[in-house]
Design a protein around this nucleic acid. Sequence first.
DNA 1: CTGAAAGCGCTTACAG
DNA 2: CTGAAAGCGCTTACAG
Lengths: 349, 349
Amino acid sequence: MVSDHDEMSDSDSARVTIKDVARAAGVSIATASKALNDRGRMMVETRQRIRDVAASLGFMPNAMARALVSQRSFTIGLLTNDTYGRFTLPVAAGLSEALIDRGVSVFLCAFEDDAERAAINLRSMQEKRVDGLVIAGKRIDRGLPIDLPRLPMPVVRVYSLCRDDEIGFVPDDLEGARSAVNHLIACGRRRIAHITGPTSFHAVRLRAEGWTEAVEAAGLPLLAGPQFGDWSEAFGYASGERLLTLPASERPDGVFCGNDQIARGLIDALTLGGVRVPDDVSVVGFDNWEVFAKATRPPLTTVDMGLNELGRQAGLTLLDLVAGKPVVPGVRRLACRLVVRSSCGTRPL
Amino acid sequence: MVSDHDEMSDSDSARVTIKDVARAAGVSIATASKALNDRGRMMVETRQRIRDVAASLGFMPNAMARALVSQRSFTIGLLTNDTYGRFTLPVAAGLSEALIDRGVSVFLCAFEDDAERAAINLRSMQEKRVDGLVIAGKRIDRGLPIDLPRLPMPVVRVYSLCRDDEIGFVPDDLEGARSAVNHLIACGRRRIAHITGPTSFHAVRLRAEGWTEAVEAAGLPLLAGPQFGDWSEAFGYASGERLLTLPASERPDGVFCGNDQIARGLIDALTLGGVRVPDDVSVVGFDNWEVFAKATRPPLTTVDMGLNELGRQAGLTLLDLVAGKPVVPGVRRLACRLVVRSSCGTRPL
DNA sequence: CTGAAAGCGCTTACAG
DNA sequence: CTGAAAGCGCTTACAG
């Protein structure tokens, strides 16, 4: 049987309270509190002695007691419907990293798109008195399947739909797309196609717009326009097979794909059909999902959305809000970053 | 400026305390508490009236106050060094789903293999008085980069090294491997190879053992023995190219791969070399990482480790421990499940 | 410079 | 059946 944790020795830190520290140091509780929190004025030796005693006793302040009086729990909730964390995980990593240094911990509430579970999680966060909420989604044009009835705490959104009076962080898809296309152009490509996901996604429309703008700005042809499909490797593969049926003169020499999976499928089909990447066709992806991007043959040049940074910024902004600092509402579009690998060949200097 | 959350109306639920409920219902605080917690004896009408009042006021009990007196925070910590969540995310999903129904929330503490950050997170969990800790890793033969100095709360491990006197949950790699090989045999394969990760992983050794046992039990040849390499698609691809150089008679007709990425690379190389999967060679993977397994051409038959269930069980066991129930120490190996897709052909009935 | 007291929002014996 | 009181572990004015 396992019960180590309740056969406590005297040094059991969880049970040491500030009262024990005060007694051991021969001071009052109030003084102990002040010494440990570096507040008020007192003799340096007294302060140091109290701290030494606390350390030797293994004292750890009870955050819940502290929260009760300070009305700050030093916790926040991360609500997401992205259970498998394709987007949320990098966001969560950036978020907690930024917050842990400030003593705040994050509750992870992930639920499939199930309104009831969402409500349970939300209620739980309210009872636990989180200082704020980060709401993270898996697309920028959808909210979560809960309405948030005037929550009594600040909310920040990440990679999710965001009303004008709310605060949100999303990647700058438009600029990311432009940089992908400009890279293809810099690599000497002139016939640049765009193969991407379903038009119902706002991200798809933004990326297509970026493609259009950059292609037109360079005075190049828009070819057949963006090819919309779904986000899968299978669609990329099918698109590749279609390109193979084109006469070589009508084939694009560069393809900007809406995500890495499409790019992967496309490259596989081209390779199998004897078209060389990047020699014959350059390909750029979107997402920098490393497990895909690095494993593609050749490794994929792709656009990184900076999800980590999105999480970090969201966390810091939420903290500002909690502290009562004024924050301008609206959505922030954070810069994407092109990660160059080998699928476009070398950019001429 | 955004500050909705502090322009509170009277119905602001976060500020409604049990005192408000008691006053509005015309009873004492103690009575209100009893009514809301369904404890003690009292007139049903009184109880109901108090509840109605609480509901109409939007009362939500302050979990921290409650925790302070009950000495139970109804939170647990999930400590992991698997920042990108390949393993931890399914575990976390299973864990929180099992716990949310019991009112317990989970703190996510992910850190790269960085002892200092680990220590900060651990300390934070202790100050927040989590009821217990789940420690999740990314391999079954390594602990986290922290030593856990006799923690004052129960600990359960998932997908991580586990001492005999601790409690841990891991997948049954041995049996999972056997079931993969037996499936190949049932599909009529006789020359079954094993291509897998580095021998330094205990999981690799267990899976190789399962392969050996199942192959020998069927009276089939062990061929060249397991081919150890790394976990990458690139290694799978190189292995496929090597198989292509073999005379057809010496080629395996079935391959059990140590993970899905190796299987993916292998299949790509075979396909490119004109060897058909599953017609000429059947392939089974390990992990059921859906984004890979489903996108492979053909879709991959593979072993699912049941990480969700691992998380669920870990959560429930941790709750037992918290409740003081005796739990037999040691590591539990949970069954894996073969997910049949198309990479092995049809199993003859 | 230090301490006694009140209070954060609850629950739990214990009286009535 | 109901309520007054003590207490969970802290912090924060406020006195001394």
